[in-house]
Simulated scan of single mutants.
Amino acid sequence: GIAWAANKLGQKCVVRMPKGSTQTRLENIAKENATVTIEDLNYDDCVRMAAREAENTEHGIMVQDTAWEGYEEIPTWIMQGYGTLALEADQQLAKDGCRPTHIFIQAGVGSLAGAVIGYFANRFKENPPIMVVVEAMAADCLYRSAVKGDGSRIDVTGDMLTIMAGLACGEANTVSWDILRNHADAFVSCPDWVSANGTRIYGAPLRGDDRVFSGESGSVTMGLVAALMTKPEYRELREALKLDDSSEVLLVSSEGDTDPDRYREIVWEGLCGTDKEPFEGI
């Protein structure tokens, strides 16, 4: 997105991508005339590298949706931009005479989740939907922070390898975490098979439903809801979330098939389809 905007505005753009990023995604960014590399670093270390480069470059500006002390203005703007998505979803639902009983929203650093949950917590102050934050198990910093339960943040380190590349972030946005710890009802940590199943369900829906080309980071919430509603081993969590056949659930598919090769591996070849490592929720 940054490469696309910079290209439109005639500005130089440098993008650093973390270990595990695919060549296809790199090539798509390069097509926008950006300088782009895949570094031998995890996401959070890549962010720090880019921040140092911006600081040491004349007219360099770091554009990133995770916040830390001293770097909060731009991430807050980005969260406000994400809020447009929540506003438009709310308006479309209202036009159809609906309001969500549940919202499942995926999280990396938590900026999208914070924006969506913050919007609906404010929109329905007296009776908010049940709101669930969903993460990749390899990078579940928000879930681990919720488990700790004292309001502090727990970081995840290491390679954080997961098919959910857009969620492979180990350090929470400080601005967003303040929203999530106060307004999210539950946090769920999901292994890759949950996302893979979500991608397949979106791609081959029930008759009459529209097909959605959803990438791995966008489909984990669909996979989670499907597992909660169909697998008896998750009955306790389903009941705790008050999910039943009358629920109106809002999901956000935050990416398309941005890596077509990986998408085909999931949909055609059943990538991650047999891994039944259980997910965890609090």
Rank of each mutant, 00 (worst) to 15 (best):
A89K: 08
A165E: 14
T101A: 03
D44M: 06
I163H: 08
P75M: 13
N56F: 12
S145K: 01
G83Y: 14
E171I: 15
Y82I: 06
C169P: 00
I117E: 06
F120V: 01
E69A: 11
A139L: 03
K148H: 08
M160E: 09
E39N: 10
D65Q: 07
L93V: 01
A94Q: 15
G60Y: 08
Y119Q: 06
V147Q: 11
A34P: 02
N122T: 15
A136Q: 01
I61V: 14
V109C: 13
A146D: 07
E72S: 12
M131L: 03
E69C: 07
N33M: 09
Y71R: 00
V47C: 10
N122F: 15
A121N: 10
P100K: 02
A30C: 05
A30S: 06
V133N: 01
A54T: 04
V147Y: 07
C98E: 13
Q91H: 08
P128F: 06
R144N: 07
A34T: 02
I117V: 13
K31H: 08
M131R: 01
E72K: 13
A136L: 02
R153Y: 12
T35G: 04
I38S: 04
R48K: 15
G70K: 03
V134A: 00
I103P: 03
Y43T: 11
A165M: 09
Y43S: 02
I105H: 02
P75F: 13
T35M: 06
C98T: 04
L161W: 06
I163F: 13
M62I: 10
Y82T: 04
T157K: 01
H102Y: 07
N127A: 12
A113R: 01
E72F: 14
E27H: 01
T101R: 01
G70T: 09
R48S: 14
A54N: 09
N127Y: 12
I154G: 00
V147K: 09
G70S: 04
G108Q: 06
D155E: 14
F124E: 03
E32Y: 13
P129T: 05
W68F: 10
V134E: 00
T35V: 14
A115T: 08
F124T: 02
G149P: 00
N33R: 12
T57S: 12
P129Q: 05
V116S: 02
Q64E: 13
T157Y: 07
V147P: 00
L87E: 15
N56E: 15
G114T: 08
R123E: 15
I163A: 04
Q80G: 14
A86E: 13
M137N: 11
E55L: 11
I78Q: 06
G170W: 10
A50Y: 13
G110R: 02
P100M: 02
Q80K: 15
A113T: 09
E53C: 10
K31P: 07
A113F: 04
E88L: 13
F104T: 05
H59W: 08
V36P: 01
S145A: 03
